[in-house]
Simulated scan of single mutants.
Amino acid sequence: MFSYTFQWKQAFARLPVMLEGAVVTIEIALLSMLIGIALAVLLTGFRLSGNRVLSGIAATWVEIARNTPALFQIYMAHFGLGSFGLHLSPYTSLLLGITFNNAGYLAENFRGALKAIPDTQTRAARSLGMTPVRAFGHVVLPQMLRIAFLPMTNQMVWAILMTSLGITVGMNTDLYGVTQDLNALTFRTFELFALAAVIFYLITKTVQIGARLVAARLFRY
């Protein structure tokens, strides 16, 4: 017979602490995206450079990021590098693992976006007297961002959710880690994790709605 007694007051009393953890979650996800985008642009350049070595490095990165679990990538950052004497904090290991994953997925998104833009766009810009840099910045880049924007939004949502894996390397300052610690103190498992799930949901929905508004503003034409 069901005899569980809900005690929501205990969970809501811990809400300020959980929101502090949510800030850390957003911080890690945002940093991993910013660094991941920069690395993805670099990897995309490697893939399209025609240099076998650079192309091979980029292809290997993308293959590992896209075809191994994110948990494995975080473990390698924390325990793998630790085996070689490079001991990282749980925060840094989580950030490094998610960034590695983001860069791999985004690099493939960027490469696909660039492939979707006809070469005639660049040739037309060059025929108007633009330098290669200006042609890329004013003609190719806006179209690439338009194509890759929604996949970037999806990756941001995925990065937010991936932060919950930090608990496996001892991360306890993000939303999931804080919730786990509070659960160990209060044993209000259902209430605390239900509340954490709602916070995760609100964060990701805010990102998605915000992205749609930005896209409607920037990509109207």
Rank of each mutant, 00 (worst) to 15 (best):
G97Y: 07
H78Y: 14
G36I: 13
L42K: 10
I74A: 02
G45K: 09
H87F: 15
G82E: 01
T25Y: 04
I35A: 14
S49E: 09
S83G: 14
T25W: 03
L71Y: 01
A70G: 12
T44F: 06
F46N: 10
T60M: 15
Y91W: 15
L42V: 12
N51C: 12
A29R: 01
E63H: 07
S83D: 12
S55I: 06
L54F: 15
A38R: 09
L48N: 08
Y91P: 08
R66Y: 08
H78F: 14
T25Q: 08
A65M: 12
V41P: 08
L30H: 05
G97H: 07
L96G: 04
H78V: 00
S55E: 11
L71H: 00
G85A: 10
A70M: 14
L96R: 02
T68A: 02
F84C: 09
A40C: 02
A38V: 14
F84E: 06
T44K: 06
A29G: 05
G36C: 13
G56W: 00
F79C: 05
L30T: 14
T60I: 15
A38D: 12
S89L: 00
A59S: 15
L96D: 02
N67G: 09
L34S: 11
G85E: 11
G82Y: 03
G45A: 14
V41E: 07
A59R: 15
S89A: 01
L81F: 13
I57D: 09
V53P: 05
R47G: 04
L54S: 03
L54W: 11
G80T: 06
A77P: 05
S55L: 04
Q73V: 06
Y91G: 09
G82V: 05
S55T: 10
A38Q: 12
G82I: 05
N67L: 10
P69Y: 01
M33D: 03
A59W: 15
H78P: 00
L71S: 04
F100S: 05
T99E: 00
T92G: 07
I57P: 04
F72I: 15
L30V: 14
I74P: 01
T68N: 04
F84G: 08
F72Q: 10
A58S: 07
H78C: 02
S55Q: 11
F84L: 15
W61Q: 02
Q73P: 08
A65E: 08
T99Q: 05
I26N: 11
L48H: 06
I64D: 01
N67D: 09
R52D: 02
I35W: 11
L31S: 04
T60K: 10
L30Q: 05
G56C: 01
Q73D: 13
S93I: 01
